[in-house]
């Protein structure tokens, strides 16, 4: 009888524990989640890019999000609320170029990027001699590194904040190094005003250990000793390529804890990055206040309405308001064009 009571109690308690669904159970931070979808019909390669982006956003994204042609933005927004989705990545395509919009739900802002160039994950793995994809690569969110954004421009600051909040924040005190498997790099080039978007996998290798021994420890296979006179030769004989690997001092770290079988906490490890794609070159075109609507905060091409906007602050509040309204309308039109 007592058992029964216990069972009932447990069942009752469980949902109470489960309620903070969108919150990291260690740090208590809210976990950002995302939808990656497209507006309008995409050609084959862009569809693939969308899939790659979804994989990149794993694990807090809908990998198999089914979208209908009739779905509009409102539908996604309605679903996003209860699911705790905080970010939208929207791919669209015009005759001039494909576009990527990164938006925060439900209120915005929205950053519109023109994708100048892109390469799919498949292309990148094809270009590599040994593409690497460990089975648990996509089980943890990627780290994000933003570089070159500190020029003091407001729109760049906003971009930084946006991208930092796309992925869950890392608590230095509790993070496990084994969960850091991927890294997303956004590098802003001042001269060309382009943002390089790269996605790498992180690999750690012990420094000062010959390749042979490393492989032996990793693979757990009986090595081929036919050509050796003595067992000690296996350890002492230097394999080729070991010198070049050990040269980069800047890329070595001492680990806080053991990582895998090979990387001991005491010894130094070298950080090796290998690209997994997708690769994009983005050009920040526009920032809007709302979710794909609202006033334009920043426009790369200097919209005439934007120029007006800066002036009337000195003139009178009424005029500026009117102009703001007209801007909104224009933005809506722009959106329609993009969507088509």
């Amino acid at each position: 009888m007592a058992r029964m009571h216990n069972k009932r109690k447990r069942v009752f308690v469980k949902p109470v524990v489960k309620t903070p669904k969108h919150v990291d159970h260690v740090t208590g931070d809210k976990i950002p989640k995302s939808f990656v979808f497209s507006r309008g019909k995409l050609p084959g390669p862009l569809r693939q890019l969308q899939m790659d982006l979804r994989k990149l956003m794993l694990p807090f994204t809908a990998l198999k999000l089914k979208e209908n042609r009739r779905n509009n933005l409102k539908d996604f927004l309605n679903v996003a609320g209860p699911m705790g989705v905080t970010n939208f990545l929207i791919l669209s395509k015009t005759d001039t170029a494909p576009y990527l919009r990164v938006a925060r739900t439900p209120q915005g802002p929205t950053l519109t990027f023109k994708i100048e160039e892109y390469a799919l994950a498949a292309d990148i793995s094809q270009s590599q001699l040994r593409p690497r994809c460990p089975p648990d690569l996509f089980k943890n969110p990627p780290l994000i590194v933003l570089s070159g954004f500190g020029t003091g421009d407001q729109h760049l600051k906003l971009t930084t904040v946006m991208f930092q909040n796309i992925f869950p924040a890392i608590d230095v005190n509790t993070v496990k190094l084994s969960s850091c498997q991927r890294i997303v790099l956004l590098n802003y080039n001042k001269d060309t005003k382009l943002i390089d978007f790269r996605h790498y996998s992180i690999r750690l290798q012990p420094v000062g250990v010959s390749r042979r021994i490393r492989k032996f420890v990793q693979n757990h296979q009986v090595p081929d000793l036919r050509n050796l006179q003595d067992v000690s030769d296996f350890v002492t004989k230097a394999g080729y390529g070991s010198e070049s690997e050990a040269d980069d001092e800047a890329a070595t770290v001492t680990l806080a804890s053991d990582l895998g079988r090979v990387n001991q906490a005491a010894s130094k490890s070298a950080v090796k990055l290998q690209e997994i794609g997708p690769r994009m070159t983005l050009h920040l075109v526009k920032i809007e206040e709302g979710l794909c609507s609202g006033g334009v905060i920043f426009n790369e091409y200097g919209n005439p309405s934007e120029k007006k906007r800066e002036d009337p602050k000195e003139v009178s509040p009424q005029e500026s308001q009117e102009e703001g309204d007209s801007e909104d309308e224009m933005d809506d039109n722009d959106d329609d064009d993009l969507d088509e």
Binding site: L143, C180, I202, A250, V253, V271, L273
Partner: peptide, 9 residues
């Protein structure tokens, strides 16, 4: 990117 990773680690 490597610099960033090293910093974090």
């Amino acid at each position: 990117a490597t610099k960033g990773v090293v910093k974090l680690f």
